[in-house]
Structure formats: structure tokens, C-alpha cells
Simulated assay, not measured.
Amino acid sequence: MTDAGYRRSAKSPRGEARRRELLDKVADDLGQNGLVDFSLRRAARAAGTTHKVLLYHFDGPEDLLTQAVLQLRDRRITRAVTAAAEQGGSLAARVRSMWPTLIGEESWVLDQAIGLAMYDAARYADLARSASRQYLPTLLAMCPDDWDEQRRTEVAELILGTLRGFLIEWRTSGDAAGIEAGFAALTRALEREEQT
């Protein structure tokens, strides 16, 4: 068992800064090399430290993996929100503008994380649940301000579920024409929703 005083220093401002620095490096490695063969030792090499230092700052390899995936998702969401803000216009146009970000840099790793959650839900279900918690506030914020909470939630969940389906289709079949047809239908549905 770790000495409580020793472990407490990990929560100091300096300890938190070090933890963020390590997490950034591990997330970068994950973004380049994916989840296959992820281990504490590989993470330590990527972070330029030892596995013991990582265990000091994280609650084991699964916690480190989860935190690194969350970090990659935060990056992806930031890029998607930026693309949507630059696009402006209708909700449909902003959602469509997010697609290149969703299939772009580091996206394959995040899709692997969802696959892990489906493959071994007992260990990795939180990776899928956390994706919803991370994306829904962004999608809710994109909905018109004059919509009530229930309507915003329903539309945000529709968008999230549809985009997840498109991502699975993209990764498994690469059917760009099918995804484009789906986007056309989603765009029409969102435009009708905004007009009512």
C-alpha cells in the first residue's frame, strides 16, 4: 500500500501539472500507435519515464488508458466544435462540418476504444459511456436556444447515434456513397426540425 502522504503529493499543483504532461505524451503515442499492444511499459517509454512514475500518477494501466482516450476525445471535440463554429448557419450544416474531424486525425484510435467497450463491456464500458458524456454537451449547445430541454436532448441523441452509425460504417465498409446518402437524410431531418 502506498504511503498516504506520498500519494497526496500527486494531487498538488506541481503533481497535477506533471500528470497532465505525462498524459499528453501517452495520448500522443496512443494517437499514433493505437490500442493494440498498449501497456504500461509502452506508455512509460512514450512519456519518457518509468512505469512506477505512471503508477504514482494513475490508478493502473486501465485508468491511464481511459484517461488517454478521454484526452484524445477532448482534442477531437475541440476540433469538431471549431469546425462547426467556423461553418455557422443551420444545425444541419454545422453537424455536417464536423464529419471530417470525426474521421480525421486520431479517429481510428477512438473507434478502437468503442470497439473495446463492445468487446469487453465489463472492463471497458465506461469508454463508451464517457463518449456520450463528452459529446452530448457539445451537441446540446449546437441546438437552437429557443428549443426546450427535451427537444434539444432528443435531437442531440439522434445526431450522436447517427454519427456513431456513420463511423462504424466508415470503419467497417468504407461505403462513402452510403454515408453520403445517410447524411442527406440526416440533413433533411434536421432542417425540418429547425423549421418547426
Rank of each mutant, 00 (worst) to 15 (best):
L22I: 11
L22C: 07
K25R: 12
K25S: 09
K25W: 12
A27H: 04
D29H: 05
D29F: 03
G31P: 02
G31M: 04
G31A: 10
Q32N: 13
Q32T: 13
G34T: 07
G34L: 05
L35K: 02
V36K: 10
D37N: 11
D37F: 08
F38D: 00
S39D: 12
R42N: 04
R42D: 02
A43N: 02
A43L: 04
A44Q: 01
R45M: 10
A46K: 03
A47E: 00
A47T: 01
A47P: 00
A47V: 02
G48V: 08
T49W: 06
T50R: 09
K52S: 12
K52I: 09
L54N: 01
L54T: 01
H57W: 04
D59T: 13
G60H: 08
G60K: 07
P61E: 06
P61W: 03
P61F: 03
E62M: 13
E62I: 12
L64A: 06
L65T: 02
T66V: 13
A68Y: 02
A68E: 02
V69M: 05
Q71S: 11
D74S: 13
D74F: 11
D74T: 10
R75C: 07
R75S: 07
R75A: 07
R75G: 06
R76V: 10
I77T: 06
T78P: 01
A80L: 07
V81N: 01
T82D: 09
T82M: 12
A83I: 05
A83L: 06
A84G: 06
A85S: 10
A85P: 01
A85C: 08
A85D: 09
E86D: 08
E86S: 06
E86C: 06
Q87S: 09
G88M: 08
G89T: 14
G89V: 13
S90M: 08
S90H: 07
S90Y: 07
A92W: 02
A93F: 11
A93C: 15
A93N: 12
R94N: 07
R94F: 07
V95W: 00
R96T: 10
S97Q: 08
S97I: 08
M98W: 03
M98D: 01
W99S: 03
P100T: 05
P100A: 05
P100H: 04
L102T: 03
L102M: 14
L102Y: 03
I103F: 06
G104H: 09
G104M: 12
G104I: 10
G104W: 12
G104P: 07
E105V: 14
S107C: 14
S107L: 11
W108V: 10
V109W: 00
L110A: 04
L110S: 02
A113P: 01
A113M: 05
L116T: 05
L116N: 03
A117S: 14
Y119G: 14
Y119Q: 14
Y119W: 15
Y119R: 14
A121E: 15
A121C: 14
A122I: 13
R123S: 14
R123P: 09
Y124L: 06
A125V: 15
L127H: 02
R129Y: 13
R129F: 15
R129S: 15
S130W: 04
S132L: 14
S132R: 09
Q134L: 11
L136E: 04
L136Q: 06
L136V: 10
P137W: 03
P137C: 04
L139H: 00
L140V: 08
M142H: 06
